[in-house]
Design a protein around this nucleic acid. Structure first.
Length: 783
RNA sequence: GGACCUAUAGUCUAGUGGUAGGAUACUGCCUUCACAUGGCAGAGGCUUCAGUUCAAUUCUGAGUAGGUCCACCA
């Protein structure tokens, strides 16, 4: 065995092996292998900037550990890297970086710019993130969400859904972000709390009397289409069916009765406008009220709002309140805590705007989707409930069209004459309808078409990620063999989007589940427990950590985190990781110095050897049991406890008197046991700390084992456990601790020789461990 | 309003129907013999109440606190 340096140079070791793995294609998928395939539907990181904080490191490393573990469990691992460079984030990134808006240039020019920028970011990510952390991707399998194969899959998916009657176009009020000026899906709307004012406004009745109506959105007065009261509200029953005059605008609207009105809220009278909020929309739909639209796509008021036309919503609100006050129509104002739906990207409150959009039928399949969800193994399992809650509560079909530039084009044209849509033939996909014309004439006979301007919702592509990674269209045989894929790792915030849409698509296309298992990972919070982000200024950057700690130490920290729990980031966890690495190095160094030539055949083992080998077997069993359930942190803890508290603290001390001594048989038994135990320990640590274990493997084992890398080895089958050896070993450890305490109390070094020692209590089988204890603690006589 | 998760030393974390294990920080002792980025030792802890039980930190119920999702939000 070769010797190890006194101190390891972490950075040098890391760079060396990162290069080696790349050059040797250590993690390449082997399509010819007969091993069972384990495929991972990797989450694509947004290539929209270079903000890499420890949260990303955690998220991506958590399942990267799994890929390494599965490889060593004997699977043929299919682990593709990927980037999401599609959709809004990229578009916004480019707009911000160049200080432009997308309308400043042509669509194709803008898209080129987006691709260029995304490409730069991807390179940066790869080098400074995935490779710097030693991630075991097969880079040949790289995909991005905007590349032509992904576009083809997304478009093919749409064409298939259209043919099956699951995709339809309709004009109706949709959730609208005035900032991004696009329609949004329900999943893209989040709640935000804010303070606002409740305004008590006077409306005038037909008899000239005034009544108060409370509203948070007086700017919507011009869109008022009715006033509602509860049918049992005695204050107002006499008004039902009569008319009421809207202040400032002085038009009359009817007064209706409806159960949904809360008598306690406000004055008990509710004004309904098209569309101030969900409740308005609901009543409009149910009661077929008229529609008065007073806002445009930018969130400005239209001509229908009279003198307020052209103002933005919040300006209009201020102006209306001013006028109400000036004319004595404002009874009073109250502070109010309000929750509003906002765009998840820009926090702009969403509005309702009727527009023509494409939808995918979703509401009709709620029951089936929940059934599909139950066929999938969720880790941890309680997240399945969240999927079901979301599915049960869905109120809208999925809007798949977006009014953006950068994204996958929708393969649709519209007849200029009759307006009928023509969907591209599956054979010509991917297609940009701006660049290609339909081959067929419209059924009305016209050959003149208008291309669809909208692009797909980014989830239209992402929801097909299992199909994309295993090449649904390019390699149908492979697809058949590998679908559903093995594992989807993802974070919990996108269960309602990514997980949901992926399950939906697999069902609509194949009546199947997309993956067998889902692994939901955590958020890293800052040390005070808040979410980490660049904008909050509390992010801890990976770059800074990598300057201070080794990649393996960071990976070690990841392996301490349990699934399903968000955790605040604590730097002290990295200190522990660094210590474990040093301990592993030093113990290996000690073994290398003492091991000499390893006997080829199994020698006659002594009691301490049998003890540590039995314990090793027990550890191997539970390590595998936990890892198979993705309980990486439990597996790691069991392994680490064994390595520290039994292997280093006791076994290595137990064999010193034998390796330094003259009894060759005893020495060889110790060497044989050391050699085997350390190798298995290294293998179990290998997925967690790949650089350090590879370095030690190279120095100590490469010559005796054929494998070029520890990472392509498999875990050995655990030996049978010798129960007696375990009991005796435990007793020996207990007695050794007792003698250590004695030496400590008497201010003796641990290596000091003792003439005699009297045990507190002699165990039953003392004879079997007497020599071991005496030798280890250097005591001549034990009574 | 409904649902889910969590509650263990200053901090982080394991575990159990019967004396709660470890890390980190703190204190003390120990440097020829792998390791001071070390070894050994010390001090310090089960959210509250009720129930089941010979016995509850563990099981059951309720409460409290924190986190999360959904609904409501005129």
């Amino acid at each position: 065995m070769a010797e190890l340096d006194r101190k390891p140079d972490f950075k040098k070791i890391e760079e060396k092996w990162q290069k080696y793995w790349e050059k040797n294609k250590t993690y390449q998928f082997d399509p010819k292998s007969k091993k069972e395939i384990f495929s991972i539907d990797t989450p694509p990181p947004y290539a929209s900037g270079d903000h890499l904080h420890v949260g990303h490191a955690l998220h991506y490393t958590q399942f990267e550990l799994v890929s390494r573990y599965k490889r060593m469990r004997g699977f043929n691992v299919y682990f593709p890297p990927c980037f999401d460079n599609n959709g809004l984030p990229t578009e916004k990134y480019v707009e911000e970086k160049y200080k432009i808006t997308k309308t400043d240039m042509s669509r194709s020019k803008f898209r080129k710019l987006c691709r260029k920028e995304a490409g730069k970011v991807e390179k940066n990510y790869t080098k400074r993130f995935f490779k710097a952390l030693g991630h075991a991707y097969d880079w040949n399998l790289l995909y991005t969400t905007i590349d032509s194969e992904s576009q083809k899959v997304a478009q093919t998916s749409f064409v298939d859904l259209y043919k099956k009657g699951y995709a339809y176009r309709a004009e109706e009020p949709v959730l609208w972000c005035p900032h991004h000026q696009t329609a949004l899906a329900q999943a893209e709307v989040e709640d935000a709390k804010r303070k606002t004012k409740m305004n008590w406004v006077y409306f005038e009745l037909e008899n000239g009397k005034k009544v108060e109506i409370a509203t948070t959105r007086p700017e919507f007065l011009p869109a008022c289409v009715g006033v509602f009261a509860h049918p049992e509200d005695k204050r107002y029953t006499h008004l039902i069916g009569k008319k009421i005059k809207v202040p400032i605008f002085n038009f009359w609207v009817p007064i209706f009765a409806d159960d949904s009105v809360d008598m306690e809220f406000g004055s008990g009278l509710m004004m309904v406008c098209t569309f101030g909020d969900n409740a308005d929309l609901e009543k409009w739909r149910r009661l077929k009220l008229p529609m008065k639209i007073i806002i445009d796509k930018e969130g400005k008021l239209t001509k229908a709002a009279g003198k307020y036309a052209g103002l933005k919503l919040n300006q209009a609100k201020a102006a209306v309140i001013d006028d109400l006050e000036g004319w004595g129509l404002l009874a009073r104002q109250e502070d109010l805590e309000q929750t509003v739906g906002v765009c998840w990207r820009c926090n702009t409150p969403i509005e309702f705007l009727p527009t023509k959009q494409w939808f995918v039928k979703t509401l009709a399949f709620k029951k089936e989707l929940i059934k599909q969800g139950r066929k999938i193994d969720w880790h941890p399992k309680f997240y399945r409930k969240r999927f079901e809650d979301w599915t049960n509560n869905l109120g809208w079909d999925w809007i798949i069209s977006r009014q953006r530039y950068y994204g996958v084009p929708m393969p649709i044209w519209y007849c200029k004459k009759c307006g009928k849509e023509q969907i591209a033939d599956a054979k010509i996909l991917p297609v940009d309808p701006f660049e290609v014309k339909p081959t067929k004439k419209c059924s009305c006979g016209s050959g003149q078409f208008e291309p669809e301007k909208d692009v797909f919702d980014t989830w239209m592509t992402s929801s097909m990620s299992p199909e994309i990674i295993i090449k649904w269209l390019k390699k149908p045989d492979q697809f058949k063999k590998m679908f559903p894929v093995s594992l989807r790792p993802q974070s919990h915030d996108i269960i309602r989007t990514w997980a949901f849409y992926t399950i939906l698509k697999a069902y609509l296309h194949f009546k199947d589940i997309p993956w067998k298992e889902v692994m939901i990972s955590n958020y890293v919070l800052d040390p005070k427990g808040r979410g980490m982000s660049k904008s909050k200024g509390n992010a801890i950057w990976l770059k800074d950590l990598l300057e201070k700690y080794s990649a393996d130490a960071i990976r070690y920290w990841v392996s301490t985190v349990s699934l399903g729990k968000d955790m605040p980031f604590k730097e002290q966890e990295l200190v522990r990781g660094s210590k474990v690495l040093i301990k592993l190095w030093n113990s290996s160094r000690f073994i290398a110095m003492n091991i000499g030539k390893v006997p080829k055949t199994k020698p006659q083992l002594e009691i301490s050897d049998k003890w540590i080998l039995s314990r090793l077997a027990e550890i191997q069993n539970s390590y595998i049991k936990h890892s198979d359930r993705y309980e990486i942190s439990q597996a790691r803890r069991i392994l680490e406890d064994f390595f520290y508290a039994e292997f280093c603290d006791f076994y290595l001390e137990m064999i010193k008197y034998r390796t330094y001594g003259t009894d060759q048989k005893s020495k060889q038994a110790a060497q044989w046991t050391l050699n085997k135990t350390l190798l298995e320990i290294l293998k179990m640590f290998a997925p967690l700390i790949p650089h350090m274990t590879e370095e030690i493997y190279e120095k100590l084992y490469k010559r005796q084992i054929k494998s070029k890398s520890i990472h392509t080895l498999q875990f050995s089958k655990p030996d049978k456990v010798d129960a007696e050896a375990i009991t005796l070993g435990k007793q020996a450890c207990k007695i050794i601790s007792e003698i250590r305490q004695h030496k400590q109390k008497n201010q003796l070094g641990m290596g000091a020789e003792l003439e005699s020692y009297k045990l507190k209590r002699k165990p039953k089988d003392w004879k079997k461990i007497e020599a071991l204890v005496k030798g280890t603690m250097r005591v001549r006589q034990i009574k």
